[in-house]
Simulated scan of single mutants.
Amino acid sequence: MKRAKVAYAGGIHEATPYGAQHEAAQHGTGQIRLADGRVLAEDAVVWLPPFEVGTIIALGLNYADHLKELSGELTVTAKDEPLVFLKGPGTLIGHRGQTRRPAGVGFMHYECELAVVIGKTACKVSQADALQHVAGYTVCNDYAIRDYLENWYRPNLRVKNRDGCTVLGPWFVDAADVPDPHDLTLRTLVNGQVTQQGHTGNMVNDIPELIAYLSSFMTLRAGDVILTGTPEGVVNVDVGDEVVCEIEGIGRLVNTIVGDGAFGR
Rank of each mutant, 00 (worst) to 15 (best):
N191M: 01
G192Q: 06
G192N: 08
Q193T: 14
Q193C: 06
Q193H: 15
Q193F: 12
V194C: 13
V194T: 15
V194H: 01
T195I: 14
T195H: 14
Q196L: 07
Q197W: 04
G198A: 05
G198D: 12
G198E: 11
H199F: 13
H199A: 09
H199E: 13
H199G: 14
H199W: 15
T200C: 12
G201V: 09
G201S: 15
N202P: 11
N202E: 08
V204K: 06
V204F: 06
N205W: 15
N205H: 15
N205K: 14
D206V: 01
D206W: 05
D206A: 00
P208H: 04
P208G: 06
E209F: 11
E209H: 13
E209M: 08
E209T: 14
E209I: 00
I211H: 15
A212S: 15
A212Q: 12
A212L: 02
Y213A: 00
Y213I: 00
L214T: 07
S215H: 13
S215W: 11
S216K: 10
S216V: 05
F217C: 09
F217H: 15
F217E: 13
M218G: 05
M218C: 09
M218V: 10
T219C: 01
T219P: 02
T219D: 02
T219M: 00
L220G: 11
R221K: 12
R221I: 00
R221P: 04
A222R: 14
A222W: 06
G223V: 01
G223F: 02
G223T: 04
D224A: 01
D224E: 01
I226E: 07
L227P: 13
L227G: 05
T228A: 01
T228G: 03
G229R: 09
G229E: 06
G229I: 01
T230R: 06
P231F: 05
E232R: 10
E232Q: 12
V234H: 05
V234W: 03
V234N: 11
V235G: 08
N236A: 00
V237A: 01
V237H: 09
V237K: 11
D238H: 04
D238L: 00
D238W: 02
V239T: 12
V239S: 11
V239M: 07
G240N: 09
G240I: 04
D241L: 00
E242Q: 09
E242M: 01
E242L: 00
V243W: 07
V243M: 02
V244D: 11
C245Q: 09
C245K: 07
C245Y: 07
I247Q: 08
I247D: 05
I247W: 06
I247T: 02
I247A: 02
E248L: 05
E248N: 10
E248V: 07
E248F: 09
E248Q: 13
G249R: 03
G249T: 03
I250L: 11
I250R: 13
G251E: 08
G251S: 04
